[in-house]
Amino acid sequence: MGTAITAVDATSRPKLSRHVRFRFDRTRDRHVLLGPETVVVLNGTGADIVGLCDGARTAAEIVAELRGRYHQVVDEDVLRFLARLAARRCLELSNG
């Protein structure tokens, strides 16, 4: 069993882990990630980021896409958020 990659840089390509599903929770009025024993409740920008994690886009491309939607996107916010979700095994990363 290999060690999961959790370090994120601009070339990382994040995607949802196989056991995680991305859903809109009408009760909470929030997007959530459903794992086997956890529900991860996302805020608006968090949900936008997760929605762009298709395994094809790099982190840099995700940031570029977000710049078209928001003013003053902070790259480091996005990379840190991706790393935190990867550390919780909600995201898988392929680097390079």
Partner: peptide
């Protein structure tokens, strides 16, 4: 007629809250 694009919202730091639940609950929600 000049069109005015809707202003983009300001960036807000992405956040999440993790809630531990029983497996059958996430299966149901899913």
């Amino acid at each position: 007629m000049e069109s005015v694009a809707a202003p983009s919202p300001m960036w807000e730091a992405p956040e999440f809250d993790e809630v531990a639940v029983a497996p059958e609950v996430t299966m149901y929600l899913g």
